[in-house]
Write a protein that binds this DNA or RNA. Sequence first.
DNA 1: TGCAATTAAATTGTATACAATTTAATTGCA
DNA 2: TGCAATTAAATTGTATACAATTTAATTGCA
Lengths: 148, 148
Amino acid sequence: MVPDHYLKLDSQFCFPIYALSREITQLYRQFLDQLDITYPQYLVLMVLWQHDKQTVNQLGDKLLLDSGTLTPLLKRLEQKALVNRNRSKADERVVEISLTVAGAKLKEQASCIPREMFDLLGISLEEMETLKSIAHKILQYNAREQKG
Amino acid sequence: MVPDHYLKLDSQFCFPIYALSREITQLYRQFLDQLDITYPQYLVLMVLWQHDKQTVNQLGDKLLLDSGTLTPLLKRLEQKALVNRNRSKADERVVEISLTVAGAKLKEQASCIPREMFDLLGISLEEMETLKSIAHKILQYNAREQKG
DNA sequence: TGCAATTAAATTGTATACAATTTAATTGCA
DNA sequence: TGCAATTAAATTGTATACAATTTAATTGCA
């Protein structure tokens, strides 16, 4: 007999992560609504702010998202005139995503978000680092073995 | 000038949580596919296994989901004959969700999942508890002040 | 060098999430 | 007690996620 303790929501480890992830998206909303972007769109922009002009695949590798999610998301960012989507001339299969002037400028407006989000979380920097490092540990342990 | 360090994906605290949450859902999939349910559906069943017959609101309070998400999800569980949806006689606005025999039986098949998931995560029980307690801390700090 | 295998995005279909609104029932007070 | 206010689900509309498939381009080898 397996004790059913482990099937209780409160003893679950995964539910708090699922709930926290949604809560974080909620918290971001108040800032991102002003920029008229969603949290996944913000993540894409953040990757591009750090290094402009990347392929859909490169964005997907960093954000762990596939083209099924990214393609429509990027089309929405394109409609908002925040990014450009261009087929690579060297390889017509590849689509390169780059920031528009407006997309690059949005970085300034977003610069206060990390600090404000930190305040909203109500935990210490140490707790933040702990959470982050354990999350990374799991993600690395389970790193998609897609290649090889 | 705000240093743009904080706008880098790698220094983000929230991205690992978002990525981890999706990874966890992925890991569950291999087990839940056999039961023909999704992770959110599994969470609903888990709440009902612990205490059968709850209203949509009660499920929403525990899972932090609203009727916009729960109603269609519960209809799918109903279609799979895992739960019953009945209007309360005492208050016709309320819908009570209860397990069918098949829904209750699924608990046995699910009993091995927590243990197997733990092995897949690749972290210690201590790290698990740490992650869980920090997640709870943030969630409580930000507990929706909907009521009051 | 032709063509099977591979690769990159896009597409299709299903299932969440959630804001905003609607519908129907219930409460509680003037 | 009538009715405005409240409440519980459901509905509508938009935006992810992601499996599976399709389309189009490129590779690499017999």
